[in-house]
Design a protein around this nucleic acid. Structure first.
Lengths: 343, 343
DNA sequence: ACAAAAAGTTTTCACGCGTAAAGTTTTTAT
DNA sequence: ATAAAAACTTTACGCGTGAAAACTTTTTGT
């Protein structure tokens, strides 16, 4: 690398012997120039270490190559994992992912969308907060900027959506639990903040009715995203009350189940599928830690490889053809039963 | 909001009745204009919904208001939590955080720094991969752009650093374990990928020697970031071998401990500090889930509130005075012993 | 070898805002 | 009320790139 200071594309054109517009073409798509000039340019790049100013580029482009990725809560390992998967896919496609978390709640979600707006992204992948989301604001955003929803759908928002089929997955695990023991009660939060919770509630109810059992709910108070804490605290109360109508508990999600398992351990109640276990506990999501709970957690694994892949494919399609008015795609993917020790 | 389309600051100057340079001042610092004009501008903003083009802004500014934040692995809840804390502090200071994860390894770390370079950030907060990091590349980056390292220091990189005092924290928990039972063996990975692992190894050794005990190590094979998996798999082997010289195991980090706890559960070995427990297990980091393991995990809580606050303060100071050549700050913060059920 | 097609060059304009200088108006201090 | 200071307006230029048009050179196909 020489000491010469290449400040802009004009300077680099001078040292590389290639005209600036051709360089511009090259940086936009290296394949669009002749191999002989491409190698000249790349040789010059090795020597002079120039890179186009990203702000100047994006000021003039109609669409940038940024793709926004908004998840409800990066502190939740489930969303961290799916975000990582999707980030990889975006990078592979030659786009630049921008990861944002709405942990702060609906205001943060809107503020994230506002930040993305000013970045003029080619598209946005949004896993909304769900019930708490400001659906109108999201709808307005989706009209302005190509948007794909994933993980949780939002009524009144006209956008592509890819997520899990909660009816199928909850049905699957309810079926399994009923076949292998007593029918489950559904352990959930009174006013859940996380998406899909209400869909799962409903799916549990219909599954139980389909199988001819009486649905039963344990709805516990609690605010925010501290599901383990809520599961543990309220689970301890429930277990202490000793008035269980069944020995099987299906939790609305794995994090509640993790808390509940710790409460059972503290209360010295053995959990598991064996005949000697007075309690069975199952969850939903296949949380990264579900394999390491005591006992390991029987749960539903969401197919977020497919969800991620389809979501990215859809947003890229929209980015490439921004003004075709096809109806928004959507698809639900089936969950897979993961049988472990807890139920 | 009217239907008029405000495309740029000139248009907005027309509808607001304020000159464009004054608007420019306002958007850079709302306090820098007279209250009367400020309210005029804000009234117009309510009606016309204009926002400056962020690319045009940054093209001309000497320093942007972006601050990069790079962590080794966002999938690790420990880093997710600290990232969230720091993001909040950056936002409070009126800067724009850009969160990146180096999960992919050293190449990803360098690629993250490259992305940040082209963004011309006011500063970068980097939690390096540690041993695996390309120290030369990081050093070159730090010379070019104001950089603060946190969580793990890097030899040969001249930059501010804030992290935990592993010598103190490991000393603290070794001391505790020795006072309350048998001295611990140190359970760790042979070739750990995560930062601080070697420092903790060394801290354990010196602590034991200080107390007059013989250090003992269990070093297990395994690659990558799947610490729970490694702790569980290798822990199961260790527990099966039945040749323990002590009943107390100190794990290099909580995630290994979580895996080890699950292995102990599977092997039906009771873990805890009581006299009836044949095994004690302790960790380090106060992982978000350490409270919900079975039994709950005795560990060290890192003071990452202080680490985050000092790191952000330092990067903001560097951003405000980019060319003063003060020696880089650094400080180590003490860990706090969190006594729970496992030891 | 020749015409046609592809690729590259030159020239020119556009983008939206930062910033500086000089002149004007408003506010503040006495 | 008046001078000084502060804030604002007008004018003008610069930033580094995208993009289009017209022209020239190189490559491709027959």
């Amino acid at each position: 690398m020489t000491t010469s200071k290449i400040k802009n594309m004009v300077d680099f054109a001078a040292v590389s012997g290639i005209s600036r517009p051709t360089l511009s073409k090259y940086f936009n798509d290296a394949e669009s120039v002749r191999p002989s000039t491409r190698s000249k340019i790349e040789a010059a790049l090795e020597q002079h270490d120039y890179r186009p100013n990203i702000y100047a580029i994006n000021q003039n482009r109609r669409r940038t190559r940024n793709i926004g990725l908004v998840v409800p809560n990066l502190t939740d390992p489930f969303f961290a994992a799916i975000a990582r998967t999707i980030e990889g896919l975006i990078l592979e496609a030659g786009y630049n992912p921008l990861l944002l978390s709405s942990h702060g709640g609906p205001e943060q979600e809107i503020s994230n969308l506002d930040s993305l707006r000013s970045i003029k992204p080619a598209g946005v992948l949004l896993a909304p907060l769900g019930r708490a989301s400001n659906a109108d604001a999201v709808a307005a955003f989706a009209e302005e900027i190509p948007t794909v929803l994933f993980d949780a759908n939002l009524e009144g928002v006209e956008a592509a959506f890819f997520g899990s089929d909660n009816t199928q997955s909850i049905g699957l695990i309810v079926d399994y639990l009923c076949r292998t023991g007593e029918p489950p009660v559904f352990f959930e939060m009174e006013t859940p903040i996380n998406p899909n919770a209400l869909r799962r509630r409903h799916a549990y109810q219909t599954s139980m009715e389909r199988l001819g059992f009486e649905p039963a709910f344990v709805r516990v108070p609690g605010e925010g995203w501290d599901f383990e804490e809520i599961g543990s605290r309220e689970g301890a109360k429930m277990l202490a009350s000793k008035t269980r109508q069944t020995n099987t508990i299906l939790c609305s999600n794995d994090r509640l189940a993790i808390g509940l398992l710790s409460a059972a351990f503290e209360a010295d109640i053995k959990v598991g599928l064996g005949a000697d276990s007075p309690l069975r506990i199952a969850g939903h999501d296949d949380h990264p830690f579900a394999k390491y709970t005591c006992p390991s957690l029987t749960t539903i694994s969401q197919d977020y490889t497919s969800i991620g892949a389809r979501s990215v494919a859809a947003i890229l399609a929209m980015a490439d053809a921004p003004d075709d008015n096809l109806p928004p795609e959507n698809a639900l993917f089936e969950g897979r039963l993961v049988m472990r020790g807890s139920a």
